[in-house]
Every structure is written in structure tokens, then in C-alpha cells.
Design a binder for these strands. Structure first.
Lengths: 275, 275
DNA sequence: TTAGTACTTGCAATTATTTGCAACAAATGT
DNA sequence: ACATTTGTTGCAAATAATTGCAAGTACTAA
């Protein structure tokens, strides 16, 4: 599993480098910030040397960037690199900045599946949130969600009816969970649901790191005719402690990679649409 | 579908720009604003150079445009371009207009009724919101509410458990209403509830201007042992269309005036504590 | 201690931004 | 119709920020 992880890291690495070289010298400082934070969203640490080559700037500049980010409290500067500010579950507002490049790609791809008049369940993760952010203002939907940020964004969409699942408020991630939330979802039969994914494994199915969150996800899936999974490529082939659903319950998996990726074959063979 | 939209937008932009440059028509500043914001809606960043060619104006002008938009808080100006102002869900936090003196006085008075370990229902109005804002960080409460802003504020209170009522999201006021919200409140028996008041009349009871809101308030009251009403003095002695509860159901009325006010006598005689 | 590495500081080259100014166009008043 | 005001735009010089380099300092591990 570790090997696979490494491979994915490399792919990501190349993407960034390519990205940087296209832009050339004219890369905004903020973009570097974003990428540094993205990295820290996945790894527990970043090295000056890595970032230097990745961002195509000198180590001095990376050092100054990290210092600036540290001043904003977004990470902790340590000798040789940086680590996340606080270990464990991050606050929602911090997590927003992570992963944007990949998740933006996913969000753009996901929009094609949303049609006027549908009833859609939005999962509480950041992937679904980005989709909500990019939703065309004229799309007519009924959205069912347990995520404060998503509800908050959709408030500006005149033609979107929002049904919010009550329950116990999970601090730091701004979603409601627990029996009440689940009972709420059970009342509906949505056309599709957009499911943020922690881990997918062809044999082991969809799994997540948190028990209650997994329970909610399971309920969401049960209440939806069709499940669209949102997963960055590195989540494929990994597994966590709590079971959500079998892999073939997913109708579609949207990733940040083109659909001709070799890794996707095993899922395609199961009849899943890879996008 | 979305992709197609983006393409059309681009074509439209380019056509317009070309057209403008041939004919020599100058584009309205507001059109440029719109285009810049559109770009930022899709991408995470915009470059001065890019916009300069796209809009067919000098970089200086783009810079001034961005500065103006930044002053309006619509984006963040950075060296070399601009980035979205805040990727996070700050919407309803911004709306909290630091309200008038009266409600602040009420909020301060209300704090004395909140004790460790209580289960408290917070109504969705601005009065209750102010109380939530002023809540000491070390107070241990279980709060039940249907208000996004209140839940959002209490998220930062470590010792406050938040139970959020699901239901249909009322746009513009960020509260949930409808049957689901009411059913949620009915599950509890709170120690006290903090009720924002529209109108109180000694004979006609508590009334409000909105039917569904009144229904929710009624449910809240039914689920609470003790009702604390929050009312600016001018609301006393008035009435609205929709009935909420009889006046003597209120244990306490908190107003912005000292409790020796003459108007209060009629309520005191009913056994209501005026504060 | 010693070697190796990372960090700090100052500096110069580059690049972006600010500022003042003049040309121009549209709206307004006479 | 004409002059005046107002606002926008592009240009250029002054100003400020960013970046990489280099010399010196501080830290870490054997």
C-alpha cells in the first residue's frame, strides 16, 4: 500500500511541476501558498528542498513563504520544512484551502451530472462543497445536506431549495451527525448523491476514518437512487476502519485524473463509470 | 453542461473583445468587473497580464479595476493579479450587524439566567443571536436551535453542545422552519428557551408577523419548562397576525428598560418577572 | 569537538505597484 | 453650440515588494 501511495505522490508531483512550468516565472505567491498548504493537507510534513524544486523557486523563497504562512497560523515552521499547525482533525476553515487543485477538477467534472429539477444529496465534505460553490446560479435543484458551509453557499442560489438535516453539530467540520441527521435523510429518495470519499478499495469497498460520519454516509447512500463518488486519485486502493458501502454501489467515481488511467480498469470492470 | 456554458462564455468574451477592438468601442468598466469576477469564479486566480489581453486594456487599468473590486470586498488583490476574497463560508457571519444598543442591553441581562448544565433553546432572531455572541466561553450548555448564525458562533464554544433542528432552509434569515424543524424541537424538554419577541400584548398574548415562524416559536415554547422573552420596550402592547402563546406562559420578559417602568406593572401583576 | 546542515542577514537585480500627468470622451451647465 | 466639469485611460518616473545569492551564524548529530 505504501508503494502505491508513493506512486500517486509522484503523479501529483509531476502535475504540479507541469503546472508551474506552464505558468513559468509568473506564479503568484498565493499559488505557492496554496500548494504548500495542499501538500500539508496530505503529508504530515514538507521539506524545503522538495518545495523548492516543486515550486521552481529557491529555498530561501520557500523559507520566506513558510514564515509568512506560519505568521498567519496556517502551519508550523520547523527546521528543514513545515508541519501542520495542529495534528489531528483540522478546523473546517483550514481544510478549505487544501487540495484545491485536484478537487476543483473533480468539481468541474461533477457539474455535468446535475440537471434541472433533480433532488440531490450533498455530502458534508470539502469536495461537495466546491461543487456547491461552482453551481450555476440558474440551476434548479432541491438539495439535501447536513453541511453548514454548503447550505450557506446555496443560500445565494435562488432556484435551489435547501433541506437541512438536523442533529448534533460536529465541531470543527460544521456538519450535523447522529441519529437525527440520519432519520432526516431517510425521509427522502434523492435522484443522486454526491459522496465525498475517504478511501475506496475494489474489494473492501468504501470506508472512512470516523464511525459516525460513516454511518451518515451509509444513510445518504441508502436514500439515493444513484451514487456519485468524489475521490482524489490517491484515495483509490486505500482503506480505513469504518465500512460505508460496497464499491459496486457507486454508479460513478469522479477523480482528478483523465479516465484512461490504468488504475481505473479494475473499477471499470465492475461496471463503474470513471470520470 | 457546465463546460458548455464556460465555452460559450469564453466565445462571447473573445467575440466582444475582438469586436470592441476593431470598432474601437470602449468597454464599460462594469463589464470588465463582471468578467474579472467571472474568471475568479472559475479559476482560483487571475493574472494582470492575462486580463490585460483579454479585456484589451492596459495592465494599469486592470490593476485599478482590481483595486476597486478589492475595496468592495469582492476579491483580494495580490501582487501580479487577484484571488478570491474568502474561499470559506463567511456569509452569514458578515451579516451580523452589530445591532442597536437596546438589544445589547437585553443580551447582557439575559446572561444571568444561563447556568452550567442547562438545556437551552435559542430562538432564531437577532436578540438570541446577540446573547450567543456574548456567551462566556467556559459556560457548559446544551443548546438547541434552528439558527445557522447561532450554531456558527457556538461552534467556537468548547463546552457547548449544539443540537441543530433540520428542515427547510429559509433563505435570507438562515433559520430552518417547517414540520421537520418542529418535530425536532418536540423531542426535547429544555430547561429554558430564549424567545425573540415581535409583539406582546397583555390580553392578546405573544404574536408574530409570519405564520411559519410563529408555528416554530409555539413548538419551542411547548418544549421548554420556562420561557424567557426578549423584547425591546416598543414591542410591548402591540399585536400581529399570528398567535404564538398567551402572555402568562412567559416566566420572564427581558427588556432594554429598567424594571421600574410603569408600563411593566400590568405584566408584573400577571406574575411575570420583568427584567 | 567537528562536520554538516539549516538559518539569518544584507544586498543587488528584477519585477510590480503607486503616483502624477496628459489625452480623451461623455455628461453637464451656460 | 460652446465651454466646463467629471471620469477614464495610458504613460512614465518614483517607490516598494519579491527574489536569489553570498557571507556569516546557529543548530544538530555523531
Amino acid at each position: 500500500m505504501y508503494g502505491m501511495r508513493a506512486i500517486f505522490c509522484n503523479i501529483k508531483f509531476k502535475m504540479f511541476v507541469k503546472f508551474a512550468s506552464i505558468i513559468g516565472v509568473t506564479m503568484l505567491k498565493e499559488e505557492r501558498f496554496q500548494i504548500i498548504l495542499d501538500q500539508l493537507g496530505h503529508e504530515q510534513k514538507v521539506y524545503l528542498g522538495h518545495l523548492s524544486t516543486l515550486l521552481n523557486v529557491s529555498e530561501d523563497t520557500v523559507r520566506r513563504d513558510i514564515k509568512e504562512l506560519a505568521d498567519q497560523g496556517l502551519l508550523k515552521s520547523v527546521r528543514g520544512g513545515a508541519v501542520p499547525h495542529s495534528p489531528g482533525p483540522h478546523h473546517f476553515r483550514d481544510r478549505m484551502t487544501y487540495d484545491n487543485e485536484q478537487k476543483l477538477i473533480i468539481a468541474k467534472k461533477a457539474l455535468q451530472f446535475l440537471k434541472n429539477g433533480q433532488v440531490v444529496i450533498f455530502d458534508g465534505g470539502t469536495s461537495a462543497l466546491l461543487i456547491a460553490q461552482m453551481l450555476p446560479k440558474d440551476l434548479e435543484l432541491t438539495v439535501i445536506t447536513n453541511s453548514f458551509p454548503i447550505a450557506s453557499i446555496l443560500e445565494e442560489h435562488e432556484h435551489v431549495e435547501v433541506l437541512f438535516a438536523g442533529g448534533r453539530l460536529l465541531k470543527n467540520s460544521f456538519v450535523t451527525i447522529g441519529n437525527d441527521a440520519m432519520q432526516f435523510f431517510k425521509k427522502f429518495r434523492a435522484d443522486i448523491c454526491l459522496l465525498g470519499i475517504c478511501s475506496i478499495h475494489a474489494d473492501l469497498g468504501v470506508t472512512g476514518p470516523d464511525f459516525e460520519e460513516s454511518e451518515v454516509k451509509r444513510t445518504i447512500i441508502e436514500s439515493s437512487k444513484e451514487v456519485i463518488a468524489l475521490a482524489t486519485t490517491e484515495k483509490l486502493g486505500t482503506a480505513e476502519a469504518y465500512y460505508v458501502c460496497p464499491t459496486d454501489r457507486l454508479a460513478t467515481i469522479i477523480t482528478d485524473q483523465p479516465d484512461d488511467n490504468e488504475e481505473f480498469k479494475i473499477y471499470k470492470d465492475m461496471g463503474i463509470r470513471m470520470v
